[in-house]
């Protein structure tokens, strides 16, 4: 009896969740293709012209370019800086490592607005605020710790013995890194890269605070499209939202082809 109730509850939850999701997403998608949509269950006529409109009106080519530049640069920088840092943190024990790690990961725990505003003020003072570089710098503040945080266990599970074996048999430090550490940490690098990429594309607060006219990413542009002065057809905003959703989804699907989150644990040494 309890088992059946339980199953029913799970079913209801799943159905509710899916309906909710389909309802929200479906509404936006349908609306973006609607010529007009008032007080009827479905729009009376469909069109794709809102996409062209949104593309022109919101300068989406430029916004997409900025989004890609920011996301790509933040991801590359977070991995390039985060991997050596994760390696050092994984391999070396020192006093105060615990508190240091906590301090390090503070930007991940604290709401971004709390440090975003002083960060923005500082960056504007140095005239970095409002530029693409400013957006990249601000996004790196939480993304670098995130990359380190994700990479740390991946590096930790690589046995020191493997490094030792490589060194004894003739590999320099650099060769050990390139031939042993990086290939073995590859699942971690992909995972960290994916998380940083998605988080940067989705980041609103920091990008909002730091971006100027020519340095808006898609989310921020979407926000301005909705709330900026002047009337804009809701259908064009919906079209923009669909573009945003499609991009994030495409990125996720592409990434999931390379990373299987459920099988992230890589088989290493049998012991230790």
């Amino acid at each position: 009896m309890r088992g059946r109730l339980w199953r029913l509850a799970v079913w209801l939850f799943v159905v509710g969740f899916v309906l909710n999701l389909v309802g929200i997403v479906g509404h936006v998608v349908v609306s973006s293709f609607a010529r007009r949509w008032f007080a009827t269950p479905v729009p009376s006529a469909f069109t794709t012209e809102w996409y062209a409109y949104a593309w022109r009106e919101f300068q989406l080519d430029q916004v997409l370019m900025v989004t890609l530049t920011v996301a790509g640069t933040v991801t590359a920088a977070a991995l390039l800086l985060g991997f050596p840092a994760a390696y050092l943190l994984a391999r070396h024990e020192f006093r105060g490592k615990g508190p240091l790690l906590l301090l390090f990961f503070l930007p991940l725990l604290v709401p971004q607005m709390t440090y975003g505003i002083p960060l923005a003020t500082t960056l504007y003072r140095y005239r970095i605020g409002g530029t693409v570089a400013g957006v990249i710098a601000a996004n790196l503040v939480p993304m670098l710790p995130l990359a380190i945080f994700v990479l740390l266990p991946f590096v930790e599970q690589i046995s020191v013995n493997l490094e030792w074996a490589a060194r004894v048999h003739g590999a320099t430090r650099l060769q050990v890194f390139r031939r042993v550490i990086v290939p073995l940490a590859l699942p971690g690098l992909l995972t960290a890269g994916l998380l940083v990429l998605v988080n940067t594309v989705a980041n609103f607060e920091l990008t909002f605070l730091l971006s100027g006219a020519g340095s808006q990413t898609l989310v921020v542009a979407l926000y301005y499209a909705v709330f900026a002065a002047g009337m804009r057809p809701i259908y064009s905003v919906d079209a923009m939202a669909v573009i945003y959703m499609t991009i994030v989804l495409a990125m996720l699907v592409l990434a999931l082809r390379f990373v299987r989150p459920t099988q992230m644990v890589f088989r290493l040494d049998r012991r230790d």
Partner: peptide, 8 residues
């Protein structure tokens, strides 16, 4: 090495 330490 005792645990072989082969590159997996």
């Amino acid at each position: 090495f005792q645990n072989y330490a082969l590159f997996p």
